[in-house]
Design a protein around this nucleic acid. Structure first.
Lengths: 191, 191
DNA sequence: CGCTGGCATTTACATATGTAAAGAAAATTA
DNA sequence: TAATTTTCTTTACATATGTAAATGCCAGCG
């Protein structure tokens, strides 16, 4: 539980009362490799804290091919944020790539606490802002850099991930085919 | 000013006192075609409400080529959100594509009001969430759809914009070259 | 009215990247 | 260890899209 509190406090410090309340909302849970935290098509209602492990967020294109949109490496917040906010069916599945230790809470309950604690409302704002910044970062990278550079950045950002994931997952995250990633790797080796 | 209040209220209703305070923060201003609301490299400190007109957000790649990241069509909030949040130099310029009527306020002053009014903190949260949702939407479109479909969607979303903007701006928004957009247009005509 | 400049389209070619299939390598299981 | 499956790399080819340059179009100005 302590990891969780540290994580929260690093985003936005929170008063005692509020802390107590949210602690009660979150229950520990195990997520095994390949288990889904949230599936496509369902209405999301849980938010989670990923203590340990790796989770991917992905969706399918028309031909049913997977596109890995994001990797979460603990400690991190997970959950189908868009579905939680819009109350629409979820489009982006989240699946454990390794065994994971998580804490889960009901998002609606959390939202209710916004009324009660200004601190938590602020936390919610900071989290939303953080997500926004992350996305903008990725948007710029996608628009500005070619796959070679994106690959290097991603190795830098998630050093562990290449050891754990098959390369087609990584290719999909970079928005390229495994073949292309293979070509890039070869080019990097010979230079 | 009324447009502004309606816009705010449509995002999140706000109590009288808070309304009064933020009204005082915002001052009317004219932005002429080609004027910048915020430039690259400077520290952003203003947030704006675009009553009327069109503003583009764009950045430059290594070769100095422009990439139009986003169009704002009034009524809308404008401002270099990332720079405002991170207090880092701005990377994404915002420039008027038509003459614009706007209201401007100092973002730090606004942020200070978050402490004073829970309502405003909530508004800030909702805005951040809204921005996030917008970005996710675009991310999915970029990953899932080819330029043809993105073009149709964009015509749908901003019907006016094609009449006002040169086609190379639109191509750049779609992430393709003017040549390619031309090819797409031809293909759509012959079908 | 004809120039001029800005934009759009077209053409020709280069390049990046995709798909499919085959073979090599690595990991897993019996 | 051998067999089997999964993953990775390579090859060959197809396609999408970029760049550069030529041409066409049109509005506004002298």
């Amino acid at each position: 539980m302590n990891d969780f509190l540290n994580y929260i406090n690093s985003i936005n410090p929170i008063n005692e009362d509020a802390l107590k309340e949210i602690q009660q909302c979150f229950k520990p849970k195990q997520l095994l490799k390949d288990d889904f935290f949230v599936k496509e098509g369902e209405y999301a209602h849980q938010i989670g804290f990923l203590k340990k492990g790796i989770v991917r967020a992905y969706f399918l294109n028309q031909k049913g091919k997977e596109y890995n949109k994001q990797f979460f490496v603990g400690p991190s917040i997970i959950g189908a944020y868009t579905s939680l906010l819009t109350k629409q069916p979820n489009k982006i599945a989240q699946q454990a790539l390794t065994d994971c230790e998580i804490l889960v809470a009901d998002f609606n309950e959390m939202e209710k606490l916004y009324d009660k604690f200004h601190d938590l409302e602020r936390l919610g704002r900071k989290i939303a802002e953080f997500y926004f910044l992350e996305k903008e970062q990725k948007e710029i990278e996608m628009a500005l850099l070619d796959a070679d550079k994106r690959y290097l950045i991603m190795r830098d950002r998630f050093p562990a991930i290449e050891l754990i994931l098959p390369q087609y997952h990584i290719a999909s995250y970079l928005g390229i085919s495994p073949t292309q990633l293979s070509r890039i790797r070869r080019k990097l080796k010979n230079s």
